[in-house]
Design a protein around this nucleic acid. Structure first.
Lengths: 226, 226
DNA sequence: CTTGAATCTGCTGTTAACAATACACTCGTC
DNA sequence: GACGAGTGTATTGTTAACAGCAGATTCAAG
């Protein structure tokens, strides 16, 4: 038993994870030009695996690379961030629809339980940041995997979320939003529980759209610099 | 003048392109386990750049890699291919909508001209394969770029199209489809020309849906093995 | 003859040295 | 004094040799 193939990790994988989280958490500033050996010293690895990781990150759009000129963290403009949310809108809408068709009853029950715990989080922390950063991510993460759509999961979890989280980190969450977001989450799960894919898709798209407008408002108000 | 930054190409880039086209054209069979030095000999390069290219391709989902066990070309099941088309449906729908809002009049005129040349292609070749393989790709390519949505372009052109084309190559095109597809293309462009984003999105989604059903039918008929 | 384990080979992962290129600085000239 | 060309250095791209793991083969025992 325990026939798990013991996913052996390589240093390139470690480098990839380290860099990705470093970028997401803002330890590496967007637009910052960074040298390879500097990174090697920082994460205790050699250039071979590092370069492989850099290639992967570039391919995912978190880095930009100019030959012989070095790599720099991608800096997304305000409009590009909005475009990203437009993509999320249709992708997560699809995810919600397929999740409604395919999630098991057990998964749906778990998802509901997760929402309860999120509610507690919000109350306890009077709470803002944590929910937006992790809880919300958790919710969308589960729906994505619940879609059973390999490519969809790959894009949402592999590409989009990391970029979204990257900006969440420097985005003070607005006061009223978490509670409203939670109620929107509940309605989405209700639709999924009723196996109403069409409704789930509609609600999810509206949910993402609301989040987008929320950020847009902040940018125009000058809260978010970029 | 000529201030083009002379995009200097590195060997890793070459390796990436070579491998990608080799996979797309079916020169490397799906599921085939391939050794690194074998590839080095085949494409005249060394392991360093090759490994970097392999990392990028894995990150894009065209290869799967098991540590110490080698790489193999991804083999997509029939259901996974259908899921891919579902993703395309919503993504290209969005692309069409945004293209209707943002393409210049010149671009639209060019697109129409392209469709005319496609029509000629079909007539000349009594034609099936070429249109489906390249012309159709060209059409969708232009609409994607016309959306002016960086991330959308990145995903559609970087991830999805190569995988779609990979299966187009071993998919004998059905007789009636090209002409019908062309007329669908025309109607989409008309909607774009009228700046009717909503309609363009609807027509594009229906177009992709029809293509999906077409393939689905073939798979059930046993024409396509996978 | 089958099954199990231990070795052994070949590959992948890693490392360190080499070559080529872009950026910066200096020097010369206008 | 300002601008341009040429050189120099530092960083990236590349190559080749080393280390470690996975799978295959072989041998022995039941």
């Amino acid at each position: 038993m325990s026939e798990q193939p013991i996913q052996t990790y390589t240093r390139a994988d470690d480098a990839f994870d380290c860099l990705q989280t470093a970028i997401v958490k803002g330890e590496l500033e967007p637009g910052e030009k960074i040298g390879e050996l500097e990174l090697c010293a920082r994460f205790n690895l050699t250039r071979g695996p590092l370069r492989e990781a850099l290639g992967r990150l570039e391919s995912r759009g978190l880095l930009v690379r100019r030959p012989h000129a070095g790599v720099k963290v991608v800096s997304v403009s305000a409009t590009e961030l909005m475009e990203l949310y437009r993509v999320r809108e249709v992708m997560e809408g699809l995810a919600a629809r397929q999740a409604a068709e395919r999630m098991t009853d057990q998964e749906i029950a778990d998802l509901l339980a997760t929402l309860d715990s999120h509610e507690q989080m919000i109350e306890e922390a009077q709470g803002l940041a944590y929910y937006q950063a992790e809880g919300d991510y958790d919710f969308h993460y589960r729906i994505a995997t619940g879609s059973r759509n390999t490519k969809l999961v790959q894009i949402l979890l592999g590409d989009l979320y990391y970029m979204v989280r990257m900006y969440r980190y420097r985005l003070s969450t607005s006061a009223g939003r978490p509670l409203r977001a939670l109620s929107e989450h509940r309605r989405i799960v209700e639709a999924i529980a009723q196996r109403d894919g069409e409704l789930a898709e509609f609600l999810m798209k509206r949910h993402i759209n609301a989040a987008r407008k929320n950020i847009e408002k902040k940018i125009q108000a000058g809260v978010l610099t970029l």
